[in-house]
Design a binder for these strands. Sequence first.
RNA 1: AGGCGCGUAGCUCAGUUGGUUAGAGCGCUACCUUGACAUGGUAGAGGUCGUUGGUUCGACUCCAAUCGCGCCUACCA
Length: 965
Amino acid sequence: MISMEKTYDPHAIEQRWYQTWEERGYFAPSRSGKAGYCIMIPPPNITGSLHMGHGFNNTIMDTLIRYHRMKGDKTLWQPGADHAGIATQMVVERQLEAEDKKRHDLGRDKFIERIWAWKKESGGHITRQLRRLGSSLDWQHERFTMDEGLSEAVKEVFIRLYEEGLIYRGKRLVNWDPKLHTAISDLEVLSEEEYGHMWHMRYPLTNGQGHLTVATTRPETMLGDCAVAVNPGDERYRHMIGERLELPLTGRRIPIIADAEHVDPAFGTGCVKITPAHDFNDYAVWQRHRDEKAISEQPNGGLINIFNRDAALLSATNQDYDLRTRNQASGGGEFAVLVEPAPGGKFPEEIIPEKYRGLDRYDARKQIVADLEEQDLLEKIDDHKLMVPRGDRSGAVIEPFLTDQWYVKIAPLAKPAIEAVESGRIRFVPDWCISRQIWWGHRIPAWYDEQGNVYVGRSEAEVRSQHHLADDYPLRQDEDVLDTWFSSALWPFSTLGWPGQTEHLQDFYPTSVLVTGFDIIFFWVARMIMMGLKFLDDVPFKEVYVHGLVRDSHGDKMSKSKGNVLDPIDLIDGIELEKLIEKRTSGMMQPQLAKKIEKLTRKEFPDGIPSFGTDALRFTFAALAATGRDIKFDLGRIEGYRNFCNKLWNATRYVMMNVEGRDCGVGEAKTGHSEPAAELERSVADRWILSRLQKTKQAVAEAIEGYRFDHAAQAIYEFTWNEYCDWYLELSKPVLNGDNASEAAKRGARRTLVRVLENLLRLTHPIMPFITEEIWQRVAPIAGVTGNTIMTQPFPTQRKSLINEVAETEMAWVMQFILGIRKIKGEMNISPAKPVPVLLANVSDNDKALVERHRRFLDFLARTESIEVLAPNDQGPESSTALVGEMKVLIPLADLIDKEAEIKRLEKEIGRLQGDADRTDKKLGNPKFVDKAPEAVVRKERDKLVETLKALESLQTQLVKIQNL
RNA sequence: AGGCGCGUAGCUCAGUUGGUUAGAGCGCUACCUUGACAUGGUAGAGGUCGUUGGUUCGACUCCAAUCGCGCCUACCA
C-alpha cells in the first residue's frame, strides 16, 4: 500500500483517474441497466472556452449522471458541440484578416475547408476542458451539429416542414446586420438604452398652408418616407388628412394619412413619418394602407428601400446594383435583395438625390440635418434616450431591411408545444427567420432555375429526378445557410440517430432532464419542444432544471470588459497573479480599461489564485446550487471545500493507519456488503454513527432526486465533518488504543470505521468523483468490497435495521456530558488538556449506568481525572456546574475555578433560562393558546416549562451556594 | 410598460406543510502544535429575518401595501 501524503493533492490524481475511466469505457451506458436515464449536454459552441456557467451546469449534470449510473440505470450523457455559424465564421474570418484576405478571396468551398481545418485543430478545446471537470460524458458517441448524421436530420426536417407548407420563402423586413451582411433573428438582437437625439423636422404642406412637424430619431431615413401619419382622432390634424406634403430635399410629394393604431397623439408632435422599408412599425402601417391610391402611386408602391447591405445609401455606382440584377436573374443567390422597381418604375437609388448616394447612414444623417437646417426646416433637436438594437455578435447597429428569407411558421408548431407544457399563454413570435447570409452552416436544400422556380429536396439529383428535369437544365442551389438554432432545436433526437430508428433513440428518447441556465435558453427550449413533438410525437425531456447565473463575489455579471471573469480551470489548477492579469487584460475590445482591471485584480487576488482542485470546485457549485437563485462565487467558499477534501483525506489516513493489516471483522467479500466474520462488539459510538449514516444516505438521495444539490452537499459535509470526524473518530481512539478494550470491541470499531468510510465515499462520489475514487481504491478491499471502480458501485441505500434511536439518545447524553465539561473549561480558561476531577449530583440509575458504560469515552474526550457519583442528598463542594438532563456535572472550584467568573457564567445561563421560562409560561397562561393550539403543541410547551424550571432551580441553588462562599 | 425573482449574522447562503432559544461556512475573539488533519482542535461574540399593516392562540414562513436590488419580455416615431 502506497502511503498517503499528509495533505491532499488533487493534481496527483485527477487527470490520471479521468484517463483511466475514459479508457476503460466506464462512461458508456451499461448494456443491462434497468431504466434509461439520459441527459443531452447543451452543446457548447466549438469556438467557446469553458466559463463558470459551464462549470456549474456540468457539475449538476455529472452529479445526476453519476448518481443514476450508480443506481444501476442505463445511463447516457450525450456530448457534443454546436457549429455556431456566425461565431465560428467570424473567428476564421479574423484569421484571414490577419493574412490580409477576405473570405471572398478564397471562395465558398475553400473557406469552408478552412473552417473544418480550424475545427480540427482548435475545436477540441472545450471538450478537453469538460474532461478536466470530471464530466462523465459518453465520448464514444460525441456528436457535432455539422456531422453527416445530424445534417441528414436537418435536411429531413427542412424538407418535411417545407412539404407541409410550414417552411416558406418570403420577402419581409428582417434584422439586418450591416457588418456581417446577414439577417439575424430577434433573439440575436440586443437592445440597449443609449443617449441620442430627437430631430424635429418640418415637412411643408404643398398647398402652402404651413407645415407639419415630425419628430424622429433617424432623420436620414426620411429619404425613404412614403407618408406622414396622424391619429384620426387628433383635432390638430384631422382636417389635414389626405393633404400632401413636400418631402424636403427630394422634391417628392407624400400624403398625410390616418392611422389610429400606430400614432399616439400624446407622443412627440403627434405626426409620424412613415418609412416602411426601414422600420418594423412603419412597415405594419404601410401594409394597412398599401392599397390606398396615395400610397400605391408612390415609387415602388411606397415601399422605398434606401440602403445597401452596408447600410449606406444606395448608389448606382456601387456593387449592389450588379448584385441585384444578378439575383433577379438567378432567383435567389448570394444576396437576395431589396425592392425591385415596379413596372416602369425607378430603381430605388434613383429616388435618392445624387448628393446623398453612397454615403454611410451616419454621414448621410449629418448631411441631411445640415441641409434641413440650411433650409430652415429643422425646428429643434432634443436630447433623447432610445433603445438601440445591436447584433449580439458584431455589435453593429441593426438595420431593418427588406430581403427574401426563409421562414418557419411558428403558430402551428407552437400550439402542441404549448398544450404539452400547459403554459397557457405564449406570445406567437413572428415566424422564425431561418436563413442566414453566411457560408458556415447547413446549406438550404433548395434549388432555383432561371425562371426563379424553387425546388426543395435532399440533393440536386433528387430534385432533378423528382421534377423530371434534364441533367443540363440549369439549377443553382440557394446560397444561404440555416440559422444555427435550427440544428440545435433537433439536438435531443438528431444525436440519437434520427431519422433512423436506432436503439439509442428507443432507449433514451425522451431524455430525462434538461439542465440549463436562464440566458436565451427559453427559446431554445421552446424550439426543442416544438420539434420533438412534431417529429417524434413526444416531448424531448421530462423535466427542465433551470439554474441561475454564476456571478462574481460582488454579484456582478462576469464579463471580459469588467475584467472579473474567473476561469474554472484557474480555480482547479491555480494561477499566478501576473498571469491572471495578463489573461484578463489581453485581447480587450477597449484597451483603456486594462489599467483599472489590473488594479482590481491585484486588490482582489494579491497572491493570485491558489489551486483548489476539481472536486472542491464541484462541491462548491453543488453547495451553492439553491433553486432559482444566481450564484455569487466566493473564493472563501471554495477554499472551505478544499479544506473539506483535506479533512476527508486525513480521516482516511487515520482509518487506514488503524485498520490496515488488522482484523476488521470483515468476512468474505460479496457484492454490496459483507457479513461479520468474527465475533464483534459495537459500542454506542459504533451504533450511533451507523444510525446517522443511514439517515444521511436517505437525505442525500432525496436531495439529489429533488435537485437540491445544496442540501445534498450540506448533508455530506455535516455528516463527514461534524459527526464522523469530530465525534466518531475521536470516540474510536480510546477503544482502539485502550488496553482495557476487548478484541471484539476493537474489531467492531475497525469494521465500523472502514465500512462507514466506504459508504460515505460512494455517497459523495457523484459530487466529488476524483478524491472518492482515489480513496475508495484503498479502502474498499479492507471494507470487504470488490470492484474496479467506485463509479459503478451501487449508490448507498438506507438500511432501516441500522437506524438506532436508543443509540442516538445515548450518544446525545454522552455528547452533552462532554460538551458541558468543555464549556466550563473553555469559559474558565482551563486548558482543555488538563484533566479535572468531576463530581456528579442528582444522579438517576440510568445516569449511573451510562457513566459506567461510557466511562472511557468521557475520560478521553472530556479529559477527566476522576468521576465520582455523590450520594443522593450530597450537593458536593463549591463547583462549576453543567447540566446533563437533571444530572449535575460538577467541577470543584478548588484552585481551578475563578469564583467571580463562575457567578457570571451562572447568571448568564440563568438569565437565558429565565427568559425561556417566562416566554413559555406566558404562552401557557393564554387560554386562547391552550384552547386552540393542537394538543401535541401544548403538551410540548408544558414539558418544556417543567424541564426549564427544574434546570433553573438547579442552577439557582448552585448560584446561591457560590455567592455565599 | 408587463412578467418573474430576491432582501435572514460583517460576507456568501440554508430555513421543508406556520409551533422550543432562527442555522451553516467564511471572517472575528480567546485558548490549544493532544499521535488523522494548523487546509486542524476547543470555547465564544454576532441577527427586533428590508419596512408597515393584516390573518392567527402563534408569522422568517401566509396575505396586502411599500421601499431597494436583479432578471426576462416588449417598446413610441
